[in-house]
Design a protein around this nucleic acid. Structure first.
Lengths: 236, 236
DNA sequence: AAACATTTGTCCGTATGTATA
DNA sequence: ATATACATACGGACAAATGTT
């Protein structure tokens, strides 16, 4: 059997990358809470690797804004305030609007078809009221557009912001049915705009999609569940 | 003498951060060339520290797109093609336009005054024909606006993109006098827009400032100086 | 095909700096 | 103020993987 030559090269997965993905997951899911102290020896024992890959992963998490390392002192999960919503969603909006603009001129009919299927799955997920699955499929829809734009910096930045947004939503926000239904409409409008290569329509709907989510967030926050989520008293 | 209590806390600078800054400088300045192989033991000997802080810095440089680590195989400085100009400058434009929007509502008269002084120094630097200094002051102008916007994600992303842009310009591009003169005008327009809190005018001029630079780049590239800057033959 | 050289990935010990009693 | 405990930063050694002869 001939081996297809265009297979994506599978790199050996280092302990570092596995730890990184694991910790990103623990932080976004809230298993590691905002403000929680991280001790590398403990994590190492817990996960079953040495301190080195733990530390290497922590370095990366710091540049992504998930932990704060005070050299020689301590390492903590970063705090996340409700007002951070703007910090996260506004640059995410700008970058995804740009991705949409670039994608409009690059997208193939095959990819448009994939977007349609994802939006259908999205609509189904909303009805199933499985909010985790719904969020997951929404992100896949957006990710396909980002991938189409084919810009490594946009891809990297939005990946980080998506993780922060997920953490934020798990901490503070529950999407309403009506809001998600509107999302389906906007997704559909983006797909139509792609078909007719209508850059302006595509961008406008992408922007609306995110800004509406941000507005919903700022007017409809979860009750403050977790004291650790707030920044500590600065008078200390 | 009373000690002012609002001093920014000076953290002990780790070997890791020093190595990181040093390598970022070497890469953007072209001392470490695109495609060049990096051996951590060599760097460690050269700089005079152990492999650990070198590796930690390399992890971060990888997430920023300056090096590529192939596990168990090799570590290389990333290639930079002329066509990467779009990848760098387009997201930078989007993010700085957003920063400008946010800054318009936050900027103080003191900061506006600082911008004016920077733009004056910028104009002087252009006449002195010291292109390094000119670029440096231009970045300080933009950085002040970004700092004013007060968004950690925008700040982090644009920092990385500024470094990539600097590397690109040193490799491929020499700003012309006329282009820089236009920049002075746009900066002035931004300052005026800040004064009157004219969000739209401020954004438009910031966008124009970057897009014009990108246009100049794509129509006026340096002669291809460096064979290593090109990606290697993909048929390998 | 197998042994070698090279380089990376991981482990763990030690020292330095920080906070607390 | 001094001593103690503790966590982090760094160093050096070993193991694993890759490419080569």
């Amino acid at each position: 059997m001939p081996i297809p030559s265009d297979l994506p090269k599978i790199y050996r997965t280092s302990a570092k990358s596995q730890v990184l993905t694991l910790l990103q997951d623990w932080i976004t899911e809230g298993i590691l809470q905002p403000g929680e102290k991280i001790v590398d020896t403990e994590l190492a024992k817990m996960i079953g690797v040495s301190r080195t890959p733990i530390r290497e992963a922590l370095q990366i998490l710091e540049t992504q804004g998930f932990v704060e390392m005070k050299p020689g002192k301590e390492t903590r999960i970063t705090y996340l305030k409700q007002s951070d919503a703007y910090n996260i969603y506004l640059p995410l909006t700008s970058l995804e609007v740009l991705a949409t603009q670039l994608a409009t001129n690059l997208i193939t009919s095959k990819q448009i078809h994939a977007l349609e299927q994802l939006n259908q799955k999205f609509a189904d997920a909303i009805l199933s009221k499985d909010s985790r699955k719904t969020l997951q499929i929404d992100r896949e829809f957006h990710q396909l557009i980002i991938d189409t734009a084919n810009n490594p910096y946009i891809c990297s930045f939005t990946h980080t912001l998506h993780l922060h947004a997920k953490r934020f939503e798990i901490l503070y926000f529950e999407h309403s049915q009506e809001m998600l239904q509107e999302s389906v409409q906007e997704h559909q409008a983006i797909i139509e705009a792609f078909r007719t290569r209508d850059v302006d329509k595509a961008k406008k709907n992408m922007e609306k999609n995110w800004l509406r989510a941000l507005e919903a967030i700022s007017t409809n926050l979860k009750v403050h569940k977790n004291p650790l989520s707030e920044s500590p008293d600065s008078s200390k």
